[in-house]
Structures are given as structure tokens and as C-alpha cells.
Simulated scan of single mutants.
Amino acid sequence: MTTLHKFLVAFIVTAVMLFTSCSKDDDNNAPSNNYTTVENILHEVNFQGYAIVTKNGNDEVRQGFGLANESIGLPQDVNLAYRIGSVSKTLTAAAIVQLKRDGFISSFNQTLDEFDSQFPNGNQITIAQLLSHQSGIPEYQLIAEQALENGQALDAIDIYNVITELISENGLNFTPGSNKQYCNSNYLIAALLVQELSGMPFHQYIQQKIFNPLGMSNSFKGTDIIDANTHAQGYLNGIPNSTYSMTIPFGAGDFSSTPNDMELWTNAVKTSWFSEAEQAEIFTQDVPSGYTDFGLGWFTTQEGNTTMYWHGGDINGYWSMIGFIPEYDATIVLLSNQQDDTGLQRNTIIQQLLTNEFQ
């Protein structure tokens, strides 16, 4: 097992659990000689879903694997919706960047007490620390899920109050900035900040500032129960498993999207959606080879001279990943409707791509 693989297995399993027929347009987009290799990687791990992998302007893979709905024989499709789980965090982080563009915040170094004077230890926690999981704020997910099991549905404001109570009673998990710990609470708070400062619902702000300008017409706030006509059915061990209360993840992971829309978003981030100055703040630099580090809404994984920026997600019945590799003008979109509690499929695919296809 390589150093990269060891680290990815240890890191990704804990970091991105929610809380984480091929086609070509024309001869100029003909697959490269590595097409079969990438396709084989996906077959070997029993990937089920839709995959897009491009390299230097060519499609390595653009195809569905398995069925989107086994009961009705629905094929995977580039315009079919999938839950994307924590990949939603890339959108929430981008909304915070947009807040700065719109003048609602002046710096990512502003502290939470500037927006809520009653937030415990808020004078120690910056917006940048929220988005890079350096805040020390405790996780809320299990508490919200247990409350729902007991018949009490918590909305985002309720969960916010739970988080502040946890901090008041038990303190932060660590001094902000001294450590890094993946935590959905950071992104629920960030989404509420978007809502509060913009004066519009969080999802409406994302729609207006990101989806509409990029033509992402099939991305939306997920529903507790999917529409089987337009949405891939999620599975766990072959059994349908796609029902989940979307009030729990909120800005940490409640979006659904299509492979086509996720390609649009990834390509936008890869090219011009962020300015050079914004990129310098968002993407972690100087990561040692074989390691992954947090940025503001994106991970950086370094293997040799190859840098991949990405995020993954997991939610009932689904796992996802989007990413890009500047050195190869590469885009990666993997939306699966087969839950993988171990993260092994994603880990293996990342390891194989970085050590074989992009070196």
C-alpha cells in the first residue's frame, strides 16, 4: 500500500462521510488511449452511478454504470439527479466568497461574534476557520438524527441553538486554529450566515449567484423523499435507501444535482469562477506529496508533482466526488447511487487516478 493510499484511507473515511453506454460529442473529444484503463478501474471497484473523467480536453470516461433505478430499469444518465451530500460544501463555501464580493463581509478573518455577539467563544473563531474545519466547534449530526428518531424534527435554527448549547456546556473541541477536524457544524453555521447577511433564503442565494449564472438548471435543495422519475434511487447493499430528512444536513450537505451540472460547476471553479486572489485564499498550497489538507470548501491532495482539488460526500444511498487537476486540465465527477459506508470505492479510485492516470 502506497503512502498516498494509506493516508487517503485514514483521512477520507473520517473526513467526508456526510457529515460526507459512453458518449462523445465529436471526433475532437474522442477518448484518449487511457479510456479503457479508467473504465476498468470503475468496473473493478463495482462503481454504480455516472462517471465523468476528462484529461487534456478529452473524455477518459463519460458513462453510466449499473442502473439508476433497478425496479423500473432506469439507466444512469448525465441529466439525472443524485444526492451529492457533502459536495454541497463547495457551494456553501462559494456563497461565503460571494458574500464578500457583495460587501456583506470584509474579510474571511472576521470572527463570529461580529455577526452573533452571543455565540460562545465567537471572538476566537474566524470565517476562514469555519470553512477549513479549524474552529473546534463540536459536531451536531448524531444529536439531530437521534432527536428525529424520537419524533422531534430540528430545523437549522434549532440545530444552531444545539451547537451553541454544546459549546456553552462543554467548550470547543480545541483552540481555534490549533487543529483540524472535519465537522458539519461549520457549514450549517456558514449557510445560516449566508442567509442572515444576504437577507434571502440560503438556497435562493445559491440559485441566484451560482446556479442561474452557470446554467445549472438541474441542481436543487434535496427533498426528504426523492422523485423517482427525475432522481436516481439510492441503494445500500441492494436495498433502496434514499430517504433522509434534509433539515439535518442543510448547508453541510442537502443538495441534489446531475453529473452535467456538477461538471459545469467543477469546470467553472477550475477556470474562472474564483479570481486569482480568491484562489490563493481558498485552495491550500504546499501540501506534501502523499497528503491531503483542508482549504476553504475544497481539499488539496498532492501526489508527486500532481495536485488535485476536490471534495467528496456521503448520504443515505449515495456517495459523490468532484475534483480537478490543473496540470492535466482534468475534471472528475463521480455520482454514485450505491452507498459505501467504508469509503473504499472513492479511496481506490482517487489512488488509482493519481498514481496511474495523472503522473
Rank of each mutant, 00 (worst) to 15 (best):
T164S: 09
N109K: 13
F65K: 10
A191G: 14
Q285V: 06
Q48K: 10
L67T: 06
T36I: 06
G57C: 01
D340Y: 15
L142K: 05
G73T: 09
S198F: 02
I282Q: 07
I315W: 09
N56M: 05
N347V: 12
V16S: 12
P75Q: 13
T342H: 14
V38P: 05
T175F: 02
Q195D: 08
A232V: 10
Q118H: 08
Q352K: 15
R101G: 03
W319E: 15
I248Y: 04
I127H: 11
A30D: 00
I84G: 10
Q207Y: 12
G66N: 10
S88F: 08
N179H: 11
D227L: 10
F7Q: 12
Q146K: 02
V333T: 04
N356W: 03
A191D: 05
L18S: 06
D102G: 04
L335P: 14
H133M: 13
Q76M: 15
S117C: 00
G343K: 15
V78Y: 12
Q152P: 01
I84A: 11
S336D: 11
P138L: 05
V78F: 11
E60K: 07
D113Y: 13
V87I: 09
G253K: 05
Y244M: 05
P213D: 03
D26I: 14
E44F: 01
Q146E: 13
F104W: 04
K100V: 01
L188V: 07
T284G: 00
F7P: 00
G317T: 09
L8I: 05
V61E: 01
N109Y: 12
A191N: 05
V53K: 05
G215F: 09
I52G: 06
Q352V: 02
T301W: 05
N173I: 00
S219C: 11
Y328Q: 10
Q181Y: 04
V45D: 12
L91N: 04
A68F: 12
Q208R: 13
H231N: 11
L130P: 07
K89S: 00
F250D: 02
F174Y: 15
W265F: 00
N241I: 01
N305V: 01
I167N: 14
I127A: 10
E145C: 03
P249A: 04
Q339L: 15
E149W: 01
I210V: 10
T266P: 07
L344D: 15
K100Q: 14
D340F: 09
E276A: 09
